[in-house]
Design a protein around this nucleic acid. Structure first.
Lengths: 251, 251
DNA sequence: ATTGTGTTTTGATGTAGATCAAATGCGGTT
DNA sequence: AACCGCATTTGATCTACATCAAAACACAAT
């Protein structure tokens, strides 16, 4: 492009102000950041969040074995985290949407422990870990917030362990749909109608099921009037009905 | 006892000095604490670890819903962490041995998210979370160490997710034995001979299997000359053989 | 020693979900 | 419009593990 240079010059200013004002104006602020920050604390935090990065659908934010030096806040888009076993079998360990933090698994060994793959064009804020360490020594609320985020990830994972360890196929899928619904709701989206960003196979991998089993459960829920499914579009007709799926298990 | 009072008086001094010197002399120090602490930092940390608590076999260190105010370092003994579902089904989410940290799940919501049950008479060091927050603002190494511990717990759990999501029964059990072996080895115990502290049912719950399946796998491994099992006693005859169990899966 | 209680082993049978297979549908490319 | 590659659905069959059942064993209490 002939006017690429000009465009870039104009952008320089735009990008800088955008970065400077980023967190204060971000509608995901209450998800990413602790409440009750002073203006100067917010300034410090904004200075720390120094890079926005765009990830195209299908590309990875990081991969197993890469050096860990930052955690990421999802600004827009959708990710899966994936662990691949030596023989090629893989396990989706989580799905991340706007306002959620990715990369916490890397702190322990200093290298990333899974792949984070964008399931749609996405944007993340990059937060260098050494800066995060420094700042959380200065800002009590940030320290605690960060600890909470890690702890919640531990709790989330033990929930998945329970799902994989004790629930039956339809229970897992009902739980999965309810969880998605609730997270979308927390972000101001409809909890009753949404587009799945992942394939049946990815859902299956997350839930420890085969894609055919996922598909059959969707069809069954549809037939039973609990949901309407059409490809990736889902409408929940009965939250209560889904909840009951895993309430009346015969032990 | 008639001389209980006297014994307690003598103990007062003993206990205090024991606490004062606790971490510096503790043989689990390199598991619990960061390396390279100065003497004064070590003093501060020792002051923070202010309570030793004994938990009898079968008793709980904490339960779901209890207020979280401390994390615990296992000094001796063995614990399971357990999540109970509304209908009574439960999932063992982990086993903890000396030098490991319990309770990290509580930070997120301020209440414990699982039960921690002693599988044998055990002792823990109690570390009040607010003191830990304060100190990790002052001691960089402690902050990082704590973050690492949490991150490793996240990684451990995603490993279990893979185990539950993609492995077959015998693979899970081989992986379980190898993991135990490796952790015992890191603590100076024999990696090849050990006593299981948990029942077949608890192993099964952890691995998403029924106790009969666990028992059958043990018998099979024994018959195949990979291990010797006699009740809770296990001798590993071929580490390599166990590793191969989950190497040659037909995808 | 004896009784009781809980754990483990082993066998016989059942089943939830995997696997195999084929048809249908959809989005992107030429 | 026609084609291709990929995702999804649905049916038929298979199988790994669960379930059911019973015996053997370990350990604690009396």
């Amino acid at each position: 492009m002939a006017n690429g240079e000009l465009a870039r010059q104009q952008n320089t200013h735009l990008v800088l102000t955008e970065l400077k004002a980023a967190c204060a104006n971000c509608n995901l602020r209450e998800l990413c950041l602790p409440a009750g920050l002073t203006d100067s604390e917010l300034d410090q935090i904004e200075a720390m969040v120094n890079v926005r990065r765009k990830i195209r659908r299908g590309e990875t934010l990081y991969r197993v074995g890469e050096v860990f030096d930052a955690v990421y806040a999802v600004r827009s888009g959708f990710f899966k985290s994936r662990l691949t076993y030596e023989d090629g079998r893989d396990q989706v360990t989580g799905f991340s949407m706007a306002g959620e933090i990715l990369g916490l698994d890397g702190i322990g060994q200093g290298t990333h422990n899974c792949d984070a793959v964008a399931l749609e064009d996405s944007e993340v804020c990059s937060i260098p870990y050494v800066r995060l360490e420094e700042l959380s020594r200065e800002i009590d609320g940030l320290q605690r917030h960060f600890h909470r985020l890690m702890s919640r990830e531990i709790v989330r994972e033990s929930g998945v362990m329970m799902l994989l360890g004790v629930m039956r196929a339809e229970e897992r899928i009902a739980a999965f749909l309810l969880n998605l619904s609730q997270r979308l709701n927390a972000r101001g989206y409809s909890p009753l109608e949404f587009h799945l960003r992942m394939t049946r196979e990815e859902i299956g991998s997350y839930l420890g099921l085969k894609l055919e089993t996922v598909s059959r459960a969707f069809s069954k829920f549809d037939k039973d009037g609990l949901i309407e499914v059409e490809q990736k579009f889902v409408r929940i007709l009965s939250i209560e009905g889904l909840k009951q799926i895993y309430a009346h298990h015969v032990n």
